[in-house]
């Protein structure tokens, strides 16, 4: 069973790389925000999986809970901050 969890965690990190593409190359700022949100929701699961692999689920569950709350607050604060028009449209290529 441990190997299953090990490979699931590995697979989750690979999927996070896919979301990272959107977080890095997204055309607008909100696209990057979506990418960061997706990575955060996967990290919550990954933390509990890491806890299972280490045999300390009770400790890692608390960290995962705090991470879920932090992810929510980060997305909320960032989207409130970017409500102004500044920086929301297609970014200009660097000159």
């Amino acid at each position: 069973m441990d190997t299953v969890f090990y490979y699931s965690g590995f697979y989750l990190s690979l999927i996070m790389l896919l979301s990272l593409y959107r977080a890095i190359f997204g055309p607008t700022v909100l696209d990057r925000l979506i990418g960061v949100n997706a990575i955060g929701s996967k990290t919550t699961v990954l933390l509990v999986l890491v806890g299972l692999i280490y045999g300390r689920v009770d400790m890692f569950v608390d960290i995962a809970l705090a991470y879920a709350l932090l992810n929510f607050i980060a997305v909320l604060a960032a989207s409130r901050y970017f409500q102004k028009k500044r920086g929301l449209f297609e970014e200009k290529p660097p000159v």
């Binding site: 909100l30 979506i34 949100n37 929701s41 709350l69 929510f72 909320l76 989207s79 409500q83 449209f89």
Partner: peptide
């Protein structure tokens, strides 16, 4: 929290 976060992002996009 997930619908609230989604709605916050949509709202930011609409207002911009």
């Amino acid at each position: 929290t997930s619908p609230t976060a989604t709605h916050a992002i949509v709202d930011a996009g609409v207002r911009a």
